[in-house]
Design a protein around this nucleic acid. Sequence first.
DNA 1: AACTGACTAAATGACTATATTGGTCAATAA
DNA 2: TTATTGACCAATATAGTCATTTAGTCAGTT
Lengths: 194, 194
Amino acid sequence: MSGRKESILKAAERSFALFGYKGTTMDQVAKIANVGKGTIYTFFKNKEELFNEIIDQFIQRMKVIAEAAIDENDPFFVNLHRALYEILSFRKEHQFTIKITQEVKEFGTLPAKQALGKFEDAILSFLEKHIQLAIDKGELVKCDPKLTAFVMLRLYIAIVFEWEQRHEPLDKEEIASLFDLYFANGLEKNKKTC
Amino acid sequence: MSGRKESILKAAERSFALFGYKGTTMDQVAKIANVGKGTIYTFFKNKEELFNEIIDQFIQRMKVIAEAAIDENDPFFVNLHRALYEILSFRKEHQFTIKITQEVKEFGTLPAKQALGKFEDAILSFLEKHIQLAIDKGELVKCDPKLTAFVMLRLYIAIVFEWEQRHEPLDKEEIASLFDLYFANGLEKNKKTC
DNA sequence: AACTGACTAAATGACTATATTGGTCAATAA
DNA sequence: TTATTGACCAATATAGTCATTTAGTCAGTT
């Protein structure tokens, strides 16, 4: 019969999403996937590689969502906000990343940490690409795209997730206008030469 | 004899700085301070209160350093950078905060967590005050001072500490010009009406 | 040739014995 | 009488143990 690899991946994703990396056993994955445990090892070198394959799949899906949020005709900051919002909502709501994030906080499981690192790298390289495009188009002032991507993501996470840990959460429109205020226009009064 | 409370505080600060909250024992503090253990409890209700008194002292010193960095005649962003740099350098280099930060990461010790929270709150209220002043002076556009303080601190920490975890660290001048670029002037080209 | 699950060595974690620690208070010193 | 002390105690943390679980293998089955 075919589809063995797919059913293993499906079962593993489900288990990782429910129980995390540590909490998932290969026996359990085999059982859910209705295969012998040995079969898993014909497709994946070990538990970590199975986990990584699922992460890579997940990142692929994230990329599709991010690119779908970009409209060539819209200005950079509109696209930026839409894309970041979609990506981070997706991440935040998806059981898989919730569980992995929790596991990193609670146990510091190394493969889970590396997974979050991969997510961040994917987001950063997506941002970097679009920042470079915006600079080329003349929409943004000249700046280091890598550093700018890093700062933008950090700022966005601060506004969207960290602020609401101690204050009233901000809605989508507020976030967009804050991003404009802080990042697009700048806070200084009457400085820019036009 | 007098100076008992002071010598307890001194001994405790030294021990907390060397061994963290968990790693510090009341027996040890008593020994270093050359007092009987019971004496500590005549001045402090318990270990946590002793710890808090030291934190409050530390924050006081931080405040002095921060205010000293402010020069009424300089523009807001010059003062901001100078003050944040001084505060965060002070924190970064001081054995006490190094140890506490490490302890929070490693064990999540609650009193240590609360201590870091207090540090952050102190910095935030300092920033908030000076942002409000700058708005009143007409140096900054109108914005929520609390939220702006929060975002500025986050951005600053990202640039100064988090960036260097995976890249070449930025020097003082670079940091200042980045802060100007991202925050004072904004990234958008030819948008501001003058 | 593809697949399986009993098997093994290694890792885990429940359990317990032991040691340490925060806090108290009767005894002591001033 | 008042301030100080350190032996003491209950609570907690640590170290050591061992039965259980788990990742990964491989001889045997389909």
